[in-house]
Nucleic acid binder design. Sequence first.
DNA 1: TTAGCATATTCGCATATGCTGATGAGAGAT
DNA 2: ATCTCTCATCAGCATATGCGAATATGCTAA
Lengths: 114, 114
Amino acid sequence: MHPQYRSDLLKMAEIFKVLGDPNRLHILSLISHQELCVCEITSILNISQSNASQHLARLRSVDLVKERRNAQWIYYSLNQDAFPLISEILQSLPDVSIELKKIEDLPNHQKCKI
Amino acid sequence: MHPQYRSDLLKMAEIFKVLGDPNRLHILSLISHQELCVCEITSILNISQSNASQHLARLRSVDLVKERRNAQWIYYSLNQDAFPLISEILQSLPDVSIELKKIEDLPNHQKCKI
DNA sequence: TTAGCATATTCGCATATGCTGATGAGAGAT
DNA sequence: ATCTCTCATCAGCATATGCGAATATGCTAA
């Protein structure tokens, strides 16, 4: 097998490995609609801050997300340039618009002053 | 979160987890062009028979492949109905047609009488 | 500067994964 | 029935992964 082919396969496999987790799929689906800071993602997914941050690190490692710092907050959004099929994949997931509408009602949202 | 949403995410994540391995991507790419028996896949990927069989079991577990028995041989092919985007994903992988043309030249191909 | 909040990183643990080697199950040939 | 070939499964191991707890870093405001 050609070395170039092998490395292409490895890179694609790495991307799918990152997609192979329900929490990361959920995060991608959310930030494909609008950028969100880590505390919002943490609240919506109902996971620990550490866990959310680790998932975001994995998404960063394959360049699937863009980040923008604003004061203490880091806003994440989908990087559609990294993997052309990513948008179509995310569109095949269930709708998350209800969750996005409810951001203000989240229990610990007061800790996250947007 | 809705339970149905969660199970959908889990199912999608499971599919991507299966896609998240270079050998399995390679197998899928090969059998998306033509059906192959296990010994051919083993030869092309240059992995052990046990390893190939285990990868095929993973692909079967999420219904990504179809199998057809013919005497001792079991021929695997892509199941395009399981995951609508699978064909597009596989088309984004490097070309495998050269490997398919060389099946007859493989070292231990005599053990696999097509 | 200090305090407080948002985020990242490290550590440790339980579980999952990929692989090899050995064994088992089916199907044909003799 | 016996042998051989194809394929599946099991056992065992090294490594990877997902998570919580603790800690570190970075920013703002007082």
